[in-house]
């Protein structure tokens, strides 16, 4: 078959909602686009452990500590589901990791903000995971089978993350004036970065149009952002917190909240590596990779030694 027939065939499958599986023919650009998106998603899960891990030793109770550890373990698991989905496209695990460590691959900019107080852990679960869920629920229907299946698992687990975060905020909001102020401060600092998680406006987004055509994405950045605002504002009101946006107003005619403009300078600065914690995050990942090298090598050497011993034994028994 000619490439252009293959491409036509491929688009017909996409249009007919037939999932693409690893060994199916696909355009190079589809493969590359997916490897980029899935690996960035995986890196985000892994880097996302850092701001939260920061609070494991200081969680205010044993219950909160257990929950936070479980959540951080989930993030590691999510990273692994996604890396293995990317590998079905022919990408090597070590290559993906190297792209992160040398700054070639991006991860979600939200994790370049610091977690200053315990309330930030609540805000992250509620807002950051809440925003991620909007995107991930859409991705459970993405056109590439392994990515969609990874997303189904992730979404099932992610729901606890958001609920535990909101519960932390609720508890603080009902607490002493100081605790309530701490919750409000966390919301003030995390609100805008959470809205930035959906990426640039549709008109500015480089990958969006093609991704929609290939049904990698099914909703645009702006649609998802609006859905997040609509869902989250009433949750803030319910626990007596104020969303830090003077332009936020319910628009009866649209049936949606209107909201203010994002500070795009800040967004691009953080994307380009000039956020408050970019260096710290990458240093932590590089340290983990370098300091873990001897473990990876020793485990492999031990496995090879055991295999050789088994071979020898089998040989002796046969003789």
């Amino acid at each position: 078959m000619q490439t252009h027939d293959l491409e036509k065939n491929f688009q017909q499958k996409i249009d007919a909602e037939v999932k693409i599986e690893p060994k199916d023919w696909m355009p190079d650009a589809y493969r590359k686009n997916l490897i980029r998106q899935i690996s960035q998603h995986a890196h985000s899960e892994v880097v996302g452990m850092l701001p939260e891990g920061n609070w494991i030793t200081r969680a205010p109770s044993l219950r909160r500590k257990l929950i936070l550890m479980a959540k951080v373990q989930d993030e590691a698991g999510h990273g692994l589901y996604l890396y293995s989905a990317a590998e079905t496209l022919g990408a090597g695990r070590d290559d993906l990791v190297m792209d992160l460590l040398n700054g070639k691959a991006k991860y979600s900019s939200i994790f370049n903000y610091p977690t200053l107080t315990w309330a930030d852990i609540g805000a992250i679960g509620w807002l950051v995971d809440g925003a991620a869920i909007m995107n991930q629920v859409m991705l459970t229907r993405t056109s590439y089978g392994p990515y969609a299946r990874a997303m189904v698992r992730i979404c099932k687990e992610e729901s606890f993350h958001q609920r535990q975060g909101y519960e932390i905020m609720l508890t603080l909001a009902k607490g002493s004036p100081e605790q309530k102020a701490m919750a409000q401060d966390a919301l003030d600092r995390w609100w805008w970065p959470s809205l930035m998680m959906f990426g640039p406006h549709d008109s500015e987004s480089t990958h969006s149009e093609q991704s929609m055509k290939w049904k990698i994405k099914r909703k645009s950045n702006d649609e998802l952002r609006q859905a997040f605002v609509d869902a989250t504002v009433p949750q803030a009101e319910l626990i007596g917190l104020k969303v830090p946006d003077p332009d936020l107003k319910w628009n009866e005619k649209r049936g949606h909240y209107d909201f203010g403009e994002i500070n795009w300078n800040e967004f691009w600065n953080v994307v380009k590596g000039r956020g408050p914690c970019n260096k710290q995050r990458l240093d932590a990942r590089r340290n983990a990779w370098e300091n873990g090298a001897w473990v990876r090598e020793a485990a492999m050497a031990y496995a090879e030694k055991k295999a050789a011993r088994r071979m020898k034994q089998a040989g002796e028994e046969a003789a």
């Binding site: 373990q73 698991g77 293995s84 590998e87 392994p146 299946r149 031990y302 496995a303």
Partner: peptide, 23 residues
């Protein structure tokens, strides 16, 4: 359910437990 990296079969089972059966 998916895939993972491990040095040998025994480690693969342990990693599979941690990655795919947390619930």
């Amino acid at each position: 359910v998916g895939s993972l990296h491990a040095a040998d079969a025994e480690m693969a089972i342990e990693h599979a437990r941690d990655v795919y059966t947390r619930r």
